[in-house]
Simulated scan of single mutants.
Amino acid sequence: MSNARLREDICRYGRSLFERGLTPGSSGNISVRLDDGGWLVTPTNASLGFLDPARLAHLDAGGRHVSGDKPTKEIPLHSALYETRGSARSIVHLHSTNAVALSMLPEIDPRAALPPMTPYCLMRAGQIALLPYYRPGDPAVADAIRGLAGKYASVLLSNHGPVVASDTLEAAVFATEELEEGAKLYLMLRNLNPRYLTPAQVKDLVREFNLDLPIVDDHGHPHDPDD
């Protein structure tokens, strides 16, 4: 896909996310990795609803700013995800309300921020890791991402918002939307003893759709086989 088309797509998807209230004000950022290893990324303090294709920041493979406006302060976050998720070609980071609310609840499992509720949440967003709070732009978040060892394409930053990596921009946007809807469902059903997908149903989805999930235990949650 041409550089010009990628720029247009970033702006188009950014506007869609903004207009549907999924990332308010100048929050959120989007990046796409280019064939030469460089990136296109949204500028700092820019609303995703009013992006200019010509002003998107262009970084080279070493992360140096080549052209366009100053890039988002969340470069360490994007960089670590690209480094650890080799198949990733796009990353979407939002401040969507329900996902942020989910990240603030005390009972959330850091290895699985959402239980297995719907097939499409698992198929699009996969298992979701919850990381501790880091201030926006803190380089330390990169080490936290690296600590996940590339096992998660979807990460929830405590008191901040979701970050999703995928092999296309469209897939990253769709996955972020599914994560937000999953968070909304969890908040609606919290303390109501809902019926989640069974371990057998989760494993069936993994087999049928070749899902890239951490190993799931008998509760449908990821676990380390050495635990």
Rank of each mutant, 00 (worst) to 15 (best):
D138N: 15
D138M: 12
D138V: 10
P139R: 13
P139G: 04
P139Q: 04
P139W: 05
P139Y: 03
A140K: 15
V141D: 04
V141I: 15
V141A: 09
V141S: 10
A142Q: 09
A142M: 13
A142F: 15
A142V: 06
A144Y: 07
A144E: 13
I145A: 03
I145N: 03
I145V: 15
I145L: 06
I145W: 14
I145P: 00
I145F: 09
R146L: 09
R146T: 04
G147Y: 15
G147L: 13
L148W: 10
L148I: 13
A149G: 10
A149S: 10
A149Q: 10
A149V: 03
A149I: 00
G150Y: 07
G150F: 10
K151L: 12
K151D: 05
K151I: 08
K151T: 03
Y152E: 10
Y152I: 12
Y152W: 01
A153T: 00
A153D: 11
A153C: 06
A153H: 11
S154I: 01
S154F: 14
S154N: 02
S154M: 06
V155N: 07
L156K: 01
L156S: 04
L156P: 03
L156A: 00
L157G: 13
L157D: 12
L157P: 08
S158I: 06
S158P: 05
S158F: 12
S158A: 15
N159H: 11
N159R: 14
N159W: 03
N159G: 14
N159Q: 13
H160C: 11
H160P: 09
H160I: 05
G161Q: 02
P162W: 01
P162S: 05
P162K: 13
V163G: 01
V163I: 05
V163P: 01
V163T: 06
V164M: 07
A165P: 01
A165Q: 04
S166Q: 11
D167M: 10
T168C: 03
T168E: 06
T168W: 07
E170L: 11
A171R: 15
A171M: 00
A172Y: 00
A172H: 03
A172R: 09
A172V: 04
V173H: 05
V173F: 07
F174I: 08
F174V: 10
A175Y: 05
A175L: 02
A175K: 09
T176C: 15
E177A: 00
E177W: 08
E177R: 04
E177G: 02
E177D: 15
E178Y: 09
L179R: 01
E180C: 02
E180D: 11
E180H: 02
E181L: 15
E181Q: 08
E181M: 14
E181N: 05
